[in-house]
Amino acid sequence: MLNIGKIIFHIIILYCLYFIGNWVQDTLDLFIPGSVIGMILLFILLLTNILKVTWIEQGAQFLIKNLSLLFIPVTVGVIDYFSLFAGKGVRLIGIVLLSTVLVMIISGAVSQWIGNRKDLKHD
């Protein structure tokens, strides 16, 4: 029971950072979403030791462990767009998948290649 209380408390702290992130985005009219600003802010607070890692640890682990679950409601939204993928629209799925696969292979291969070269130099 103590643990659940801890998790809830940690999530409340994360929620506050999310709100601050949104506020920063609105105020400065930035293109980066509030959640990402909140994440960068939390990272800085942890690095500078202003916020102790033990204040968010269990809550963060809990949310990350269940990240897939949190995406399900948005994903189910596809239901309202079935008609778009009827007929010619079905090609869009192929286009997105092909483009996604290309990104994955090229970005992954490039960073692996540069990383390996760097290792060789150190030897």
């Binding site: 950072l17 992130g21 909140g38 690095l47």
Partner: peptide, 25 residues
């Protein structure tokens, strides 16, 4: 109708993205 509840889970998505700073740290 589904999203009446789905929205609650959706609300946790923001703090979950914030939480990604933890493994990064």
């Amino acid at each position: 109708t589904y999203m009446i509840g789905g929205e609650w889970l959706n609300q946790l998505l923001g703090p979950a993205v914030v939480a990604l700073a933890y493994p990064l740290y």
